[in-house]
Write a protein that binds this DNA or RNA. Structure first.
Lengths: 208, 208
DNA sequence: ATGAGATTTGAACGGTGGTTCAAAATTTAA
DNA sequence: TTAAATTTTGAACCACCGTTCAAATCTCAT
């Protein structure tokens, strides 16, 4: 019947929605497995077990293992991609914009992606897919760098190397996937704010 | 002849030193391969190729792949483990101590470990080894947390959750392995200082 | 120079995991 | 209810990779 990204045109709406629900379930299970074991050590059997099927059922929804990873990446990026423009709309100053991006990114990491490890698994993608994901990631980084540069130019931030500053910020945020567990003992509703205060505060011009 | 952690007692000094040199070379190659591909995707053939031997030669020096990883972990921890006590000896204030630890840790990451990805590969260790590495890592984190707590208690730092603050700091530092490349375009001699200024500065009590 | 020891190599093994494919099972729609 | 469509399953395949082992090669020490 299906190509594994969408359904045949004559399939009923009910069947389509059921298919999409199962597909989404597989992606959720994959994300969890990748977080726990990494992509390479996760077997299709692991993912299937979390879903409650056998590994070969996954081929009804995805053509191969890598595509599952790729789709996880795309979903993660979709969550993150609007954060910059939202921060720019809401705020004019660099500090407020940066604070907003960080807070939102932490929220996405913890509430939507459940501590997604996806930032780590880029090298497992092949050729064009890897280039695409890296491209989108680099766009996001660039956008944050521009905010930092804005802060420096307007005298709000110390004259740091924006690239290093952004790597530090994104490192802190991406590392959340290493320790954050939904319902775990660490991490509260306010952690986005603490992260942002810390990471933005450290850039502000010192008043001596 | 050898057990793979040391040599037979009657082996000449010359042969011992040669053996140890080769062994160290293998560890260096492994660290590089793990950085580039991750532990799971790195084959023994990859490591061997970097050394210029065949994969089976590695068994003369290490009993299995995991032991290579374990030894990489131990070496990394050896580099990091003295940083806390050094900072405590050198400084009395929390901010100075924290600044010192961060600067030193960044230096170790970039100069000694060439951007070691080792923080990421803990789940690949089995049982007792994993517990050991996690234990040592947790000790280090705890030490940093105590510095942060000192800063809070003495009114030097904002009243943050020390655990979150330390995760942010260690995230930023560990993330270096994702973008830092020896001789690469990013990263200068002063990046440790920028990182430390940023990450410590963000904790300092605000003066309004 | 030579024999012993150290080091490296290549062949082989076995287990694992991604993938294919056809049959079985389940669901759907008339 | 029934046939068609969809979904799941299990058997099988094969490539790959960690590991073993004995032979080949190299190095060392006398």
């Amino acid at each position: 019947m299906s190509s594994t990204t969408d359904l045949a045109p004559d399939v009923s709406l009910h069947v389509q929605e059921k298919w999409l629900r199962r597909r989404a379930e597989i992606l959720r299970a994959a994300l969890r497995a990748f977080r726990e074991k990494g992509y390479a050590e996760t077997t299709l059997g692991d993912i299937a077990e979390y879903v409650g099927v056998r590994k070969t059922a996954l081929y009804h929804y995805f053509p191969d293992k890598e595509t599952i990873l790729y789709e996880c990446h795309r979903e993660s990026l979709a969550e993150v991609s609007g954060l910059l423009s939202a921060a720019r709309r809401r705020h004019t100053g660099a500090a407020d914009r940066l604070h907003s991006v960080i807070t939102d990114h932490v929220r996405v990491m913890t509430e939507t992606l459940d501590g997604s490890p996806i930032s780590f698994e880029v090298p497992s993608l092949s050729g064009a897919r890897q280039a695409e994901i890296i491209g989108a990631r680099d766009q996001y980084e660039k956008g944050i760098r521009e905010i930092v540069q804005q802060g420096i130019s307007e005298g709000e931030f110390e004259a740091v190397d924006p690239k290093l500053a952004v790597f530090a910020i994104l490192g802190a945020i991406n590392w959340i996937s290493r320790w954050y567990r939904p319902g775990g003992p660490v991490g509260t509703a306010d952690m986005g704010n603490q992260f942002a205060d810390h990471l933005v505060g450290g850039l502000l011009k010192r008043k001596w």
